[in-house]
């Protein structure tokens, strides 16, 4: 990643609140690099996704190379390198949810949102045209007792049926 490429992006810096939180974070670890995951979470919460400018900024803050940050960002599925919708809908499709018909919920969501399922390399595929929702499949969300489950941003929605999905979408759209 050359410097010219990074210049195209809008530069990134933590806002005041996140800067405070970051300063607190960094004191928890004997080496700065260890704060990588919490720092990237902070940055992603601020911008919505990890741009090259974010990676450069995080690398400077943690005193590591940009490549190392990129290395981490590409490994973990929770970090996005492309823009996502305001609401990220994660549908669990692992065995316990599959045994409780998560397929019905997924198909219903696809139909209602009129979008495909995002893949890790193509998030735009699962994002609605108005940029409000991103639909993606995820592995076990550790809530198998209340399957099928979906997670909308940080909130878990349990025992879903197509009717409950409709209710939820109506609430989110308003």
């Amino acid at each position: 990643m050359s410097d010219e490429l990074i210049q195209i992006e809008t530069p990134f810096a933590f806002n005041e609140e996140n800067q405070r939180e970051f300063d607190e974070l960094i004191g928890r670890y004997p080496i700065k690099e260890a704060a990588m995951l919490p720092t990237l979470h902070l940055a992603q919460n601020q911008t919505g996704y990890i741009t090259p400018a974010v990676m450069k900024y995080v690398a400077e803050q943690l005193e590591v190379s940009v490549m190392k940050v990129k290395d981490v960002v590409t490994f973990y599925p929770m970090f996005f390198e492309e823009p996502v919708g305001d609401y990220v809908i994660r549908v669990c499709h692992t065995l316990p949810c599959a045994l409780r018909d998560c397929k019905v919920v997924l198909e219903h969501l696809k139909e209602k949102l009129g979008t495909d399922i995002a893949s890790e390399t193509n998030l735009a595929k699962g994002t609605t045209a108005d940029g409000k929702f991103t639909l993606m499949k995820v592995e076990c969300l550790a809530s198998c007792d209340v399957a099928p489950v979906i997670m909308v941003n940080g909130d878990l929605h349990k025992n879903l049926t197509p009717e409950k999905v409709d209710e939820l979408l109506a609430k989110l759209a308003s």
């Binding site: 065995l95 592995e139 076990c140 550790a142 809530s143 198998c144």
Partner: peptide, 11 residues
């Protein structure tokens, strides 16, 4: 880091 499919007690 409870991620094993079918496990949800720690949560």
């Amino acid at each position: 880091d409870e991620s094993e499919p079918g496990t949800f007690s720690n949560r």
